[in-house]
Write a protein that binds this DNA or RNA. Structure first.
Lengths: 199, 199
DNA sequence: TGTACATCAGTGAACGCGCGTTCACTGATGTAC
DNA sequence: TGTACATCAGTGAACGCGCGTTCACTGATGTAC
């Protein structure tokens, strides 16, 4: 079958965005190939160029969608009353380190963004901004400047620890886990994080 | 001139290691090309293969040399009595964000290491371990476990903030600088960091 | 100290290879009548 | 409701291109005598 319902085409677009997000987080923007992304959805690379102008355009859209997803997760945590502690525990879990189906785009992509193409960079910067605002809301810190400061500090620690944990996972798994645990302890011990039972 | 003194050859090897370190930090391991590294020293790519077995072997050696350099910087700060505060201020300076002649390899490379070749990964993991030990020493925290915890937390925050600052530098310079400043405030406010005058 | 010769760091053309992108083609979909 | 036809999402071969790596070659260095 070479032609497809408009509905299916739209579904394919969404699937491509999801697959692209996952692949970018797992491999990085440059290392991820359009063929691999298309293949993950069961399409060929040519299909991508019917839906997106270029690899960069796909990457930009995928990164924006990724941050949308992260914001939804944060709102869900907020509504469930989990607060910062729940966010930190979810983020610094071995499951988040080991799998890329879901996950934060900051840890795997931030380092690469400085040298990425302009539209990709812009999409990331906008997403990061929204992410920081969402963490600031979740913190329930009244003063906006202090809330923003805390959000930056928290996401820096979270993403930095995750990058270090993933870097050491292969040849030094104990250090990798120790990194996650130490960062979690440090964040939970922060006086601005309300104490909550760990279970 | 095609043949060169043994001394010059050894100097070239050192120059290649330095250029490789700088290029890797600026571009990432995958994006950095052997031709670019050789060109930075005034040699051609073929010369690299007389000194190193492969690009990965060069990268491994360059990363190890990079961490050697960082350890030397940390020891210098320690001997000068600067302590953690001096380290944090040096790390989170705009100068460190904008230039790659010197600089920490963790912020630009950690995210990429999880998918790097085995020898590169090993070199990075070993270097990271030494880096953490050096920060633990600098902290002057008596309990070894607490010192290690703090070192992990500090380097995670530093490298995470630097990656985020570099990511936003292009299209959102104010946020970029705000990230550096917020992370520095957070780290200097930590009770484990002895207060020091900012100038 | 001179001389003849082997060494080997560096060169640069050439190689595979994989990537992003293009494009002629396909044929079911969806529309105009 | 049928019929004829235009549309356009997806295919896959083909394209440039840049990369890591190889290798025959060069000629000053350094050594053996």
């Amino acid at each position: 079958m070479v032609k497809v319902t408009k509905d299916v085409a739209l579904q394919n677009r969404e699937s491509l965005l999801q697959a692209a997000g996952q692949t970018l987080r797992a491999e990085g923007v440059q290392a991820a190939t359009v063929a691999a992304i298309a293949g993950k959805v069961g399409l060929t690379h040519g299909a991508i160029y019917r839906q997106f102008e270029s690899k960069d355009a796909l990457a930009s859209a995928a990164i924006t969608a990724d941050f949308d997803r992260i914001l939804a997760v944060l709102e869900r945590i907020d509504r469930a009353g989990g607060g910062l502690a729940a966010y930190f525990r979810t983020y610094l879990a071995p499951d988040h380190r080991d799998h890329f189906v879901w996950g934060c785009p900051v840890a795997p992509l931030a380092a690469e963004m400085g040298r990425a193409a302009e539209p990709v960079q812009t999409a990331f910067a906008a997403g990061l901004h929204r992410n920081l605002e969402a963490i600031a809301r979740l913190s329930r810190i009244a003063d906006p400047a202090q809330a923003k400061d805390f959000a930056i500090f928290a996401l820096a620690t979270l993403s930095g620890a995750m990058a270090m944990a993933r870097a050491t996972r292969g040849c030094d798994p104990e250090t990798s886990t120790a990194i996650l645990e130490a960062a979690l302890r440090a964040l939970l011990a922060d006086p601005r994080v309300p104490a909550t039972p760990s279970a």
